[in-house]
Every structure is written in C-alpha cells, then in structure tokens.
C-alpha cells in the first residue's frame, strides 16, 4: 500500500529516477581517498567481456557542487584503475560513475598511508524533480522546518554506535536534485535528541552521532536512529576513533 502511494505521489510530482552508480568520498588531513575502478563482472557476459570500457566519474562535494570530472578507460574486463580523488577543500561528498555495463566492482578506499579500509558503491538512482515540484517541496519544507519537522517521504532506520574510544558517524547522501531536509531522531522518540539537517541537492552531510548522544565512560552505547527525508537519500557508516593519534576512518555501505 505504501509502495503504491509512493508511486502515485512520484507520478503526480513528475519525479524521474535515472539509474546511477555512486560511491561516497571523504577527506581529512592525513587521509587519502582512492577509488578502485574495474568491470570484472563483465567477464561473465560474452557481449561485454572485451573492452575498452569508458567510465566518467563525476565528483560532487557536500554542497552538491560538481567539483571534478574524471575520464577513465579500462582496457578490458580484468583491468583495474586506482583513481585518487583530489583535494577539493570539502570534507565529504559522493561520486557518480557512468559507463559501459558498470554495475559493481567499484570500491572506495580510505588510507592513512599505513593501512586502508574499503567498501563498495551502490547501483541505485537519483531522483529528478521538475521545477514546479521542487518549488512545492521547497515551500512545504520551509514551513515544516519551522516546526522541526520534514516531509517524511522516505524513512530509514539505522543503528549508530558511540563508545568510550570509538564511534560510527553517518555520511548522509542526498540522492536528489531537491534540498533534502533530513530529520534524525535518536530512539526512543521523545527520550533522545534529534537534529534537522538541510542537505543541498546532490549534497552530503557527515553526522557526528556523538554530538547527539554523549559517549559512555566505557564500552559502547548503541543508538537506534530514525531518519526521515523529503526526498531519496542513503547513507554510509563511517567508523572513527576519538583518539587524535589516528586519522584513519572506515567506511561501510548498508542495505
């Protein structure tokens, strides 16, 4: 029923959902962010197993600005290219990858030069709203944000962790061309804190959950979160330690 209502609402608002493969990126001093690009899955598909494969990597920053565009060519289905993402002065964002038959095998890595952590991207979609429906959402969003609410078109649940020495932050990705007001509620509702985050079109936000829930003196506190957004969004979990001695972070996709 909910799915049907969403479909009807999308039709009324004129929303289109072109398929997009995306990966998150992060920057901080002492940390290198490198993409691993490949099309190794194509070797199982006779019609696609021979290259070259041309990829276009478009890098958006947290404000949704297009910061860079990279052209990469994979000579065949087993070729691998490591693409360092140049410093943009921003702290996070995501890249979209367009190319021939590319649905998987793309990783983002974070390294402090000694070790690295990795996760993969996702084949999903970006929502495109026409001008008039963007205007409708903008008005509704402004009105509701005055009440510390948003249009809860999409709701996600995610556990976060805040420990004495570590935590999991959330990298929120606005996968739409409208401003996404995301309300993050620490559950149980009413007992925990909540924040409103305004993410520009194609923008991102790194949410430090320790700012919502204090760290325990020892052990790790589990923080169930409910996230409501007025347009499509997804998230990655970012592992961090509190210690200033380590710049290294980990990244992980979620379902």
């Amino acid at each position: 029923m909910t799915r049907l209502l969403r479909r009807v609402a999308r039709g009324l608002l004129g929303v289109e959902r072109p398929l997009v493969y995306y990966l998150p990126w992060l920057e901080r001093p002492g940390l290198e962010c490198v993409l691993i690009l490949s099309n190794v899955e194509a070797r199982f598909k006779p019609e696609y197993k021979y290259g070259p494969f041309k990829l276009r990597v478009t890098q958006y920053d947290a404000t949704g600005l297009k910061r860079a565009e990279h052209r990469v060519e994979l000579s065949d289905s087993t070729d691998v290219v490591e693409l360092p993402l140049s410093s943009t002065g921003a702290i996070c964002g995501y890249v979209t990858v367009a190319g021939d038959c590319t649905h998987s095998d793309l990783y983002v890595t974070l390294s402090d030069g000694v070790t690295y952590a990795a996760t993969h991207g996702r084949q999903e979609f970006v929502e495109h709203y026409p001008f008039w429906s963007r205007a409708v959402l903008a008005v509704a969003g402004r009105v509701l944000s005055g009440l510390a609410r948003t249009v809860p078109a999409f709701v996600r649940y995610q556990y976060a962790y805040v420990g004495a020495g570590s935590r999991s932050d959330l990298l929120l990705l606005n996968l739409s061309n409208v401003t996404n007001r995301v309300r993050v509620i620490a559950l149980p509702a009413g007992a925990g804190s909540n924040v409103m985050i305004r993410i520009p079109p194609m923008g991102s936000h790194l949410l430090n959950v320790a700012n919502m829930v204090p760290s325990p003196a020892q052990g790790t506190r589990v923080v169930p979160l409910r996230l409501e957004g007025n347009a499509w969004f997804n998230l990655y979990v970012v592992g961090a330690v509190h210690s200033e001695r380590s710049a290294q972070l980990s990244l992980m996709h979620v379902k």
Binding site: G165, S166, R167, S168, V241, R245, S246, Q248, S250
Partner: peptide, 12 residues
C-alpha cells in the same frame, strides 16, 4: 572494534 588500539571500528 578493538579497544586500546587506534584502528577505527568496522561495520560489516
């Protein structure tokens, strides 16, 4: 997460 080490926690 392995406490007392400086490696970030992993989520999987």
């Amino acid at each position: 997460y392995r406490p007392t080490f400086d490696d970030p926690p992993l989520y999987y």
